[in-house]
Simulated assay, not measured.
Amino acid sequence: MIKTEIQEMPTTWRCGRFLFDFSKRKRPIVMGILNATPDSFSDGGQFQVAKDAITQAEHMIANGVDLIDIGGESTRPGAEPVSLQEELDRVLPVIEGLKDCGVPLSIDTYKAETMRQALMAGVDCVNDIWALRQEGAVNAVLENINCGVVLMHMQRDPVTMQFNPEYQDVIAEVKQFLKERADLLIAQGIEHDRIAIDPGFGFGKSLEHNLNMLRHFHSFSELAFPVLAGISRKSMIGKITGKDTNERVAPSVAAAIMAADRGAMIVRVHDVPETIDALKLWEAVNT
């Protein structure tokens, strides 16, 4: 297990109605991906109907998922935005069906009004690829005194982010961005223990940038927030293995374990049962 010198590690993460206590758990939080979209890169169209999405969520819950991340708009490279109403029509029925499911729910959105309505409907966390930089997003979160927040780094936007991304030092630049965003939110009244950070694998990064971030993932923990690793089935895995998205389960699980070894406290995954089984073994070895 890779060790790193950390001045201060988070002991809790407040997520709406739920509190994750890292002092009482060995393995990372498993965040299950639930895309109520027709065009997400891996599972687009599979759970576009609310009842199918709810069934998939129930399957994840039965297999031990810790948190379910609901999305109504694809943010894959080159994705075009959808209207506010279309996003709401996709996610609100799913939230309604799951709000009392017993595990926290997250809304994967950058739109302030979607955040606001999703929080009112019962979600516990906002997961934002724009790190609350869109108009009204900070206020939407400030209106809810308990919700968790995941701030992600992205270079440019989903349409252009993979057009020759460049960094002088990807680790330093991503860390600086995340620190600045977190400090800004804390200054505006969002408590430290509500914030998690995500370096944003695949969001404005080349293969080498992604590998460098995974190789040195422990560095992000130095910011003293829970760090999320979202690598599941992404193109970096396809470039290395030559496999299509649905054939990337094994390397995705391996990537989650590598991230856990390097300090990830949250892993965002498509393949919940496989990831949890692997983390159980990881936990047994590291106990």
Rank of each mutant, 00 (worst) to 15 (best):
I2W: 02
K3S: 15
Q7C: 12
M9I: 10
W13E: 04
C15Q: 06
G16A: 14
G16F: 10
R17K: 15
D21Q: 13
F22N: 05
S23G: 15
I33Y: 15
N35L: 15
A36I: 15
T37V: 13
S42Q: 14
D43M: 12
Q46Y: 15
Q48K: 11
D52T: 05
T55L: 12
Q56R: 15
E58A: 09
H59M: 03
A62D: 12
V65E: 00
L67T: 07
I68D: 00
I70M: 04
I70P: 05
G71K: 01
G71T: 07
G72S: 07
E73S: 01
E73A: 06
T75H: 06
G78L: 02
E80N: 08
P81M: 07
L84I: 12
L84V: 13
E86Y: 02
E86P: 01
E87M: 12
E87P: 09
D89F: 06
R90P: 14
L92Y: 10
V94L: 11
I95W: 06
L98W: 14
D100P: 05
C101M: 13
V103A: 10
P104G: 05
S106T: 13
D108E: 12
T109R: 11
T109V: 07
Y110L: 11
Y110K: 11
T114N: 11
M115T: 02
M115F: 00
R116W: 08
Q117D: 09
A118L: 06
M120I: 06
V123S: 05
V123E: 03
C125M: 15
V126N: 07
L132T: 00
L132R: 02
Q134C: 04
G136R: 00
A137N: 02
A137T: 09
V138N: 00
A140P: 00
V141T: 02
L142S: 01
L142Y: 01
L142H: 01
E143V: 00
V150P: 01
M154I: 11
Q155E: 07
Q155T: 05
R156T: 10
R156V: 03
R156D: 15
D157F: 00
P158M: 01
V159Q: 13
T160A: 03
F163N: 11
Y167M: 05
E173G: 09
E173T: 07
K175T: 01
F177I: 01
K179Q: 11
E180R: 06
R181F: 08
L184A: 06
Q188Y: 02
E191K: 10
I197N: 00
D198T: 04
D198L: 03
F201G: 01
G202I: 05
G204N: 03
K205W: 04
E208M: 08
L214W: 01
F217G: 02
L223I: 07
A224S: 15
F225Q: 01
F225R: 01
F225Y: 15
G230Q: 09
S232Q: 04
S232M: 06
R233F: 01
K234D: 09
S235H: 08
S235M: 13
M236W: 02
G238F: 05
G242L: 08
T245P: 09
N246D: 13
N246S: 10
E247I: 04
R248K: 10
R248M: 06
A250D: 15
A250T: 14
V253A: 07
A255F: 11
A256N: 09
M258Q: 12
A260F: 04
R262F: 03
A264R: 05
E274D: 14
T275N: 14
I276Q: 10
K280E: 15
K280M: 13
A284M: 13
T287W: 06
